[in-house]
Design a protein around this nucleic acid. Structure first.
Length: 569
DNA sequence: GCCGTTTTCGGCCCGACTGTTTTCAGTCG
């Protein structure tokens, strides 16, 4: 039983209690607990096993006991009993957009609708018409909601969301009424997946902005259209929300619209204790506006320092901000080089020189060319005989380049027994050795862990690339004993990679945070296969910032000399 | 069910938009 299973049980409990019209604050307590559990970097199982249950926001004595019961027995009696009181299909009905707990209950009580199938049949037979509070428009919305639910639109990657957001940005920027705009929501918090795109606009003429927004060519449906707030769905099925406020409310609206929800609630509670009220228009004392133009002035009013959007998840950052003890997050300018890129020597699309030039223009002072090793034939892995020529090419290039160094590297394969694809006598020639698993993903947890541990223990392996093997939409992360890996990585001074490729993002934010906590240093690399891909480093940086990493936690913030010293330790 | 620089009881964030019963509950973020 992992954190996500526990969170799901709590979420289900919240949903059932909602339909049963239980105490709304109790319901929120379960939802909040579920959300906070999903954001934890350590396994609950670990806590229970070691009997060191820490203070987790939103989890008191009762929920702590429920978590222990779930971990220890694999089930929760309270949940099992609760489930028996309602038909299971009601939860599916509650998942339909526009259908909430009240409607679910109404349909169940008046029409005995117990499942999605029941609901579809009832609509087909026109049974919903005439039920208290339901008319044509509501039925139409339910039908649309069911269709949407069935298409099963998952969350998209941050990169996909960014592409949609930029399209809207381009269109809105052309309007003279738009004074300023910003992305908000989970897009601004840089979550690795995003459900919808939130855009904030500053304007004195909200109606002009709204009417232009809903007419942007890629809009398919208009979900809501108001004076200051509208929602649309694009042809690619992405929901985009747009909110317009005036300049004096920009900070307040940005804060509100960025979230997270739990973060906002905590902040507003804090404000109440100080005799203040926060909404999207500003901070108010009685009904007097006291702050709102910028986020900074609002945080200051609340007696805390600025909290970066990536940290706003209510996992302890508010408490640290009140004490001015927040870590200084790593930023783009801190990165000095990329330690995982490919060239045309293996499966890349550009020559070493082209990659180096592009990296230099990108502002880096070094780059490691880490082509695949001999066994990986599908990616034209390099045979030992070719390596000498590649090394010579790099040496010649380095003589010509000024203020820049190309490092001679490899992404060496870890075979199914944990053996490294080049002999030690070959490995010792490289400046940078990145090791990774590319085959045999379906092995057991013990086998996969053993392979990674063996790689760490090789004295020439400096970095483990994409350590959990996750590939968005293709492959789930493989199951490894991450705590064991961290222990060995720390003891052997092996660095773990945050692979910035948008469909990898591996390590993810939770793993990276856990790595930092256990004293393992990280690397942010792109795995670029052509010059244009060096810029995906922004997504790796997003992971790092969400993991609360500082400059000193990431080794490719070091100068080239310091870096080589660090990896050879 | 959680939580405490008004505390161990009595509070619990705040507002926009929709559809409908035309004043407001339900849903959403």
């Amino acid at each position: 039983m992992g954190n996500f299973e526990v969170a799901k049980i709590f979420r289900d409990i919240a949903k059932i209690l909602e339909i049963k019209e239980d105490n709304p604050f109790r319901i929120r307590a379960y939802e909040r607990a579920a959300q906070n559990i999903e954001g934890l970097s350590e396994d609950l199982e670990e806590y229970v096993r070691k009997d060191t249950f820490p203070k987790i926001p939103g989890i008191g004595k009762d929920l702590e006991n429920k978590i222990k019961e779930i971990i220890n027995t694999g089930r929760l009696k309270f949940y099992e009993d609760l489930k028996k009181t309602l038909p299971q299909g009601l939860l599916d009905i509650g998942n339909i957009p526009s259908v909430g707990p009240k409607t679910t209950k109404l349909l169940y009580e008046k029409l005995k609708i117990k499942s999605l199938t029941d609901l579809e049949k009832a609509i087909a037979k026109n049974k919903l018409q005439g039920i208290f509070g339901i008319k044509e428009k509501t039925i139409e919305n339910i039908q649309k909601g069911i269709a949407l639910l069935k298409r099963g639109k998952e969350r998209m990657t941050l990169a996909q969301a960014m592409a949609v957001a930029e399209e809207f940005q381009d269109a809105l920027k052309k309007l003279s009424e738009v004074k300023k705009m910003a992305f908000a929501g989970s897009l601004r918090r840089q979550k690795e997946t995003v459900r919808d795109v939130d855009i904030l606009v500053i304007s004195d003429k909200p109606s002009k902005v709204m009417s232009a927004f809903i007419r942007i060519p890629s809009v398919k449906d208009i979900l809501a259209e108001g004076a200051t707030k509208s929602s649309v769905r694009t042809k690619s099925d992405v929901q985009v929300d747009c909110r317009v406020v005036e300049s004096k409310s920009f900070g307040a609206a940005l804060l509100y619209f960025t979230g997270s929800k739990n973060f906002n609630i905590k902040l507003r509670q804090l404000a109440i204790r100080k005799g203040l009220k926060i909404n999207e228009y500003g901070v108010f004392r009685k009904n007097t506006f006291v702050a709102g133009r910028t986020e900074e002035e609002i945080f200051k009013k609340l007696g805390m320092v600025y909290i970066e959007p990536e940290m706003r998840e209510d996992t302890g950052e508010i408490e640290l901000a009140l004490k001015n003890e927040l870590p200084k997050l790593i930023a783009t300018k801190d990165l000095k080089g990329d330690l995982h890129v490919h060239s045309s020597w293996s499966d890349g699309n550009n020559s070493i020189e082209e990659m180096a030039q592009a990296a230099k223009e990108f502002g880096y002072s070094y780059i490691a060319i880490t082509d695949h090793s001999q066994s990986l034939r599908v990616a034209s892995g390099l045979k030992v005989a070719d390596l000498k020529k590649k090394k010579q090419e790099i040496e010649k290039l380095n003589k010509r380049l000024k203020n820049f160094r190309v490092l001679y590297g490899t992404e060496v394969d870890i075979d199914s027994d944990g053996k490294i694809d080049y002999k030690d006598s070959v490995l010792k020639e490289f400046d940078i050795v990145v090791a990774a698993i590319h085959t045999g993903f379906k092995q057991t947890k013990a086998q996969l862990t053993r392979r990674l541990v063996a790689a760490c223990k090789n004295k020439y392996v400096q970095i483990l690339a994409h350590p959990t093997g996750r590939l968005w939409g293709v492959r789930d992360p493989y199951d490894i004993d991450f705590e064991e890996l961290l222990k060995v990585a720390r003891d052997t001074n092996t660095h773990l990679e945050i692979n910035a490729f948008p469909d990898r993002l591996d390590l993810n934010d939770l793993h990276a945070r856990r790595a930092r906590e256990s004293g393992v240093k990280l690397v942010i690399s792109t795995d670029a296969h052509e010059t244009s891909q060096l810029s995906v480093v922004q997504f790796g940086l997003a992971v790092a910032r969400r993991a609360w990493l500082r400059k000193e936690d990431v080794i490719n913030t070091l100068s080239c000399e310091a870096l080589l010293k660090e990896v050879r330790k």
